[in-house]
């Protein structure tokens, strides 16, 4: 089931956050609407401030692919980890 997969991704992202002592305020996993692409989004109140964005993005990407069964059945086409400050600054900015 598609919703079950999204729930697994959310749970795995939460597990990744706990393993890195990250205090999250938002964990989102949703289908992009194009193919089997999934967008994953994590916002943290604490824990990202001293961790460079591409390193934490890549860490989460690899964790999700290792953790979620059926990883070959979907594509994570967008993955983003943000501090609350980045979230307030950038989220919702569209052209």
């Amino acid at each position: 089931m598609k919703t079950a997969l999204l729930e697994k991704i959310r749970e795995a992202a939460a597990e990744w956050a706990r393993a890195h002592n990250i205090e999250t305020t938002l964990i989102e996993a949703k289908y992009s609407g194009v193919g089997s692409s999934v967008h994953v989004f994590v916002v943290a109140r604490r824990g990202f401030e001293n961790w460079w964005w591409s390193e934490r993005d890549r860490s989460l990407f690899r964790f999700l692919h290792a953790k979620v069964n059926g990883a070959d059945e979907f594509i994570i086409s967008s993955l983003n980890t943000m501090t609350e400050e980045e979230y307030e600054k950038y989220e919702g900015v569209e052209v």
Binding site: H39, F41, W53, S54, D57, R58, F61, R62, I75, I76, S77, S78, L79, N80
Partner: peptide, 11 residues
């Protein structure tokens, strides 16, 4: 390849 795309996509 997928990882490289995913980190550019949102940023």
């Amino acid at each position: 390849l997928q990882e490289n795309f995913s980190i550019v996509h949102k940023r």
